[in-house]
């Protein structure tokens, strides 16, 4: 087996700020990797570079597709990136409104990726959309309502359904539970955990919520000031943190 996504020597500067400073990361099939760190530590920049949404100043990102062919993400054309984004990848934004079409019904939102992938049978598309609404614990009877009618937690579920409907191999998640209240967060995390296990997804999760990382991730990468300061298995990093910053991070978690 070989890694799905492999990045080495990533550098990215915004003026004098080093957003990424010699970062390396690997994601293996079926694995959930959490990138944790404080605001401004470069974790979102890393996610954007790995997903091809931003170009690093230096370094290499390799993605291996289902056929085993390697794609260099930093050199990929817009068309190739869009093809990957449409078929192999998914992206879950922190704010569901950034990803959803607010004027379009729930069914249309979920069906858009299917139609972009070339499906042209209305009945099939609708049936798949209904099945996915059920899968993310939404009422399929609300398939024709627009996301405006939905609560924040439901919008996030809809975004997840829309992302996973085409069976991606790798999903990028940027603070998927940010901005939701704790009980909704707990249910959403539970849902994501179930789906990830069922679908055997590889997930790259960016979060500052240590509890979410502990619940979902197999491995944790801790970032600070653009550098990876510590990485390892979730239990090891959280129960036996080595780096002073990780120790601070872990000790700052509030116990209820």
């Amino acid at each position: 087996m070989s890694p799905l996504l492999q990045a080495q020597g990533l550098h990215l500067r915004f003026g004098a700020v080093r957003a990424l400073d010699d970062v390396a990361i690997e994601i293996w099939p079926g694995e959930v990797v959490a990138i944790v760190g404080e605001s401004g530590s470069g974790k979102s920049s890393l996610l954007r570079v790995l997903a091809g949404q931003a170009r690093a100043d230096a370094g290499q990102v390799l993605y291996r597709d289902a056929a085993g062919a390697e794609h260099s993400i930093l050199d990929a054309s817009d068309a190739a990136l869009r093809r990957l984004m449409r078929a192999d990848w998914g992206f879950v934004h922190q704010n569901a409104r950034d990803a959803l079409r607010m004027e379009v019904s729930a069914g249309g939102n979920v069906g858009e990726r299917l139609m972009a992938a070339g499906q042209r049978h209305y009945g099939d598309i609708r049936a798949q959309a209904a099945r996915w609404l059920e899968r993310v614990e939404m009422d399929p009877a609300r398939i024709d309502e627009t996301p405006r009618n939905f609560s924040g937690g439901m919008q996030q579920r809809l975004q997840i359904a829309r992302t996973l409907v085409t069976n991606p191999r790798l999903v990028f998640m940027d603070e998927p539970t940010g901005g939701l209240d704790v009980s909704v967060q707990a249910r959403l995390l539970d849902l994501i955990r179930g789906l990830v296990a069922d679908l055997d997804l590889a997930v790259l999760l960016v979060t500052h919520d240590i509890a979410a990382a502990r619940l979902l991730a197999h491995r944790i990468v801790v970032m600070r000031a653009g550098r990876v300061v510590e990485h390892g298995l979730t239990d090891r990093v959280l129960d036996d943190p080595q780096h002073p910053y990780t120790q601070l991070l872990v000790s700052s978690v509030l116990a209820a």
Binding site: D78, A79, R82, S105, G108, E112, R113
Partner: peptide, 22 residues
């Protein structure tokens, strides 16, 4: 322009989907 360049026309199909659904 980019959607035309990439022949990415799922969006137009979504509009037809919405018409039929409504």
């Amino acid at each position: 322009t980019r959607l035309h360049a990439l022949a990415d026309y799922g969006l137009m199909q979504v509009k037809l989907y919405e018409d039929i659904a409504a």
